[in-house]
Write a protein that binds this DNA or RNA. Structure first.
Lengths: 340, 340
DNA sequence: CTGAAAGCGCTTACAG
DNA sequence: CTGAAAGCGCTTACAG
């Protein structure tokens, strides 16, 4: 006789002399089971080291115990750090994390058209994705609670967690102005999709507003791809101009790191000849002594996870629609100094 | 009338005028469906953007369409890059990735005792985890194909992909010897678990072997935690010695980056006063002009994914037990030079 | 090649 | 408080 591989609810029921209905109720802590029966069932379950089949549970109307996390890519500091924050929170409550990455537009298109997460998760966290209205509709069609992280302010009263990118830009530019710079350029990063990315827009608008308030108009702005290479290229563009600015506000630390590399190769000394500031507080910023505006990244992941878990436990009914904005903070290092 | 939330196999069957049995067969590419019928079914499924319910599928004996990926942590370059490689491959074949991170020993213990992946995935990829025999047994009890990535040579004929860490160390040390160094120290990194990590052992043994072959005995070795901080600390330890070595082999780039930071702060110039070499080719290595031994990281993820997918399509019967070793490559940059 | 039917292991009205 | 029964959406012998 071949022993059964797994013990199921029927085994527990037989063992405790009740119906599987009662077992199901007792195991989930549902009301409607007497204390004695409940105890008998629980100890039987323990004795048999029974584990509910998530498949069967789900199939008959229960939850999947899974939450989908959608990120553009994972091999970049920001995303992997947010993801780590999410994963930690999920782990503590035993929720499984189903990861979806959308590295290129083909993958992205496939994702939103096929909606592979459909029926597979109880909720979704969308990290740093500017969505078209079509894509937003598709996400809605998943018909599960959704939380957005960073980058993209969803319209309506959706659940969102992120930073104030305009303010972050203002803090960076404000620092440069404060220490005496007037000739400040920006290396702007733009996503290669057609969709305007809220983060990008907010950071450049913060730059322009802050400059204007200081009475400075038409500052130089170069636009590059969001990558170290892009930053490198952006600084080359600035170097090729007749006049070098005394300071450069870089859209992000990765842009700034590329810029620093170009400056090092060109033999331009930082901060003596030019000041550089970024945004993010990427681990490399500390290593390269880069002044930056830090944003809490792992926290954003943790808070997103908590938001989504809360919506799950409150039966998904409560869409709190809360927009949570986390503070950013100026971190002064060696890459900025007063002009001359 | 309330529209049905999700389209199921019955809908597809009705739409294409066949039974659900045929739909099931067609969708899984099983034989026993005529070409015409198959086409009709597939296009109906596409039209309805149908997705099989993994729950139902699994419950009736099919696969889950999910593969578990276990990584120590995800907010570190190596792991997130491996993961990106895996995710890409899975994406192309529509396999869902269930992510498990084991950031601390509590999480790790929970994972191996509760085995949360049980009955939830068709296969598992284990990244860079040195396993105790107890843990290996538990993984086996998942009773699904398993592939190991990096770090840990599994015993027996398991599926494994990684680099030759001893050789990588030899390449690094060989370079230092080749350009004339004789006084070479190592900053070794050790994991904080009790289990000896194969990677660590191999790199230090490569160092010692290569030194011995050059007639150099008892080189200085300091051991620190595997992190930038650790590297920083390690270099502080070396600086506090009476005699500074002319070159330092760092266990990994992250260690080397920490070491470089300490040297910069101490005003010791690289490579004039001391040469530094790492292992990995971390993105920051290029930024900081660090000489290193590069390993293909994303490739390891991709190959692991392919291995596991192959085992899945060949019905899990074929445990090829293939150990795949990827080549490493010396990348000479500005942090190493001949002594004096 | 195709379909009717049993069954996977649960949850949840519905009765008692 | 308790149980019999329907049903979740699939896969897989078993017949045709």
């Amino acid at each position: 006789m071949i022993p059964k591989q797994t013990v199921n609810m029927t085994d527990v029921a037989r063992h405790s002399g009740v119906s599987i209905a009662s077992v199901s109720r007792a195991l989930r802590g549902e009301p409607g089971v007497s204390l004695v029966t409940r105890d008998r069932i629980l100890s039987a379950a323990r004795e048999l080291s029974y584990v509910v089949s998530p498949e069967a549970s789900r199939l008959s109307g229960g939850a999947t115990g899974r939450v989908g996390v959608v990120v553009p890519r994972i091999d970049a500091w920001f995303y992997s750090t947010v993801l780590a924050g999410i994963a930690d929170e999920f782990d503590t409550v035993g929720v499984d994390l189903v990861l979806c990455t959308l590295p290129d537009s083909a993958a992205r298109h496939r994702f939103f058209e096929a909606l592979p997460l459909r029926r597979k998760v109880d909720a979704v966290v969308v990290v740093s994705l500017p969505l078209t209205s079509r894509e937003r509709t598709r996400i809605d069609q998943l018909n599960v609670p959704t939380v957005f992280v960073g980058g993209h302010h969803p319209d309506g009263n959706r659940s969102w967690i992120g930073i104030d990118d305009e303010l972050a830009a203002r803090q960076a530019v404000g620092h440069l102005l404060h220490i005496g710079h007037r000739d400040i350029a920006m290396i702007q990063a733009a996503d290669d999709t057609d969709i305007p990315w809220a983060t990008d827009q907010a950071r450049i608008s913060g730059f322009h507003h802050q400059m204007r308030e200081a009475g400075l108009h038409d500052p130089t702005v170069v636009t590059v791809k969001w990558s170290i290479e892009g930053g490198s290229r952006g600084m080359e563009m600035l170097l090729s101009n007749s006049r070098l600015p005394t300071a450069v506000f870089c859209h992000s630390d990765e842009i700034a790191l590329g810029a620093l590399r170009t400056l090092r190769r060109a033999g331009v000394s930082v901060p003596q000849q030019i000041s550089i500031i970024g945004v993010d507080d990427h681990p490399s910023a500390e290593l390269t002594d880069l002044t930056t505006v830090a944003q809490p990244v792992r926290d954003q992941g943790q808070i997103a996870a908590r938001k989504v878990l809360r919506q799950l436990t409150t039966d998904g009914v409560e869409n709190d629609g809360a927009m949570t904005t986390l503070p950013t903070r100026l971190v002064i290092r060696g890459s900025t100094a007063s002009p001359h």
